[in-house]
Simulated scan of single mutants.
Amino acid sequence: MVHDLMARYTGIAQALHWLTVAALCLLLPFVWVAENFPPGPIRVFWYMAHESMGISVFLMVLMRLTWRWGHPAPAYPVGTHRVTVVLAGLTHGLLYLVLLVMPVTGYLMAGNGQDVPFFRLVDLPGFAHDEALGKAADTVHVACQFAVYGLIVLHVAATVWHVAVRRNGMLERMLPPQRLP
Rank of each mutant, 00 (worst) to 15 (best):
H71N: 15
H71I: 09
H71W: 13
H71C: 10
P72K: 03
P72M: 01
P72A: 02
A73Q: 04
A73N: 06
A73V: 03
A73R: 05
A73H: 06
A73T: 03
A75D: 15
P77T: 01
P77Q: 01
P77S: 01
V78Y: 07
V78T: 12
V78F: 10
G79H: 10
G79Y: 11
T80V: 12
T80W: 05
T80D: 09
T80N: 09
T80G: 07
H81G: 05
H81M: 04
H81Y: 02
R82T: 14
R82Q: 13
V83Y: 05
V83T: 13
T84Y: 13
T84H: 13
V85N: 06
V85L: 10
V85F: 02
V85A: 10
V85Y: 03
V86Q: 11
L87T: 15
L87W: 14
L87Q: 08
L87K: 02
A88F: 07
A88L: 04
G89H: 12
G89L: 10
G89C: 09
G89R: 12
G89F: 09
L90N: 01
L90C: 09
L90P: 07
T91Q: 09
T91M: 08
H92L: 07
G93R: 10
G93E: 11
G93T: 10
G93Y: 14
L94H: 11
L94C: 15
L95G: 03
Y96P: 03
Y96M: 03
L97E: 05
L97D: 10
L97R: 03
L97S: 14
V98Y: 03
V98I: 12
V98N: 02
L99I: 09
V101D: 10
V101L: 15
V101Y: 05
M102E: 05
P103N: 01
P103G: 01
P103R: 00
P103C: 01
V104F: 01
V104A: 05
V104M: 07
V104L: 11
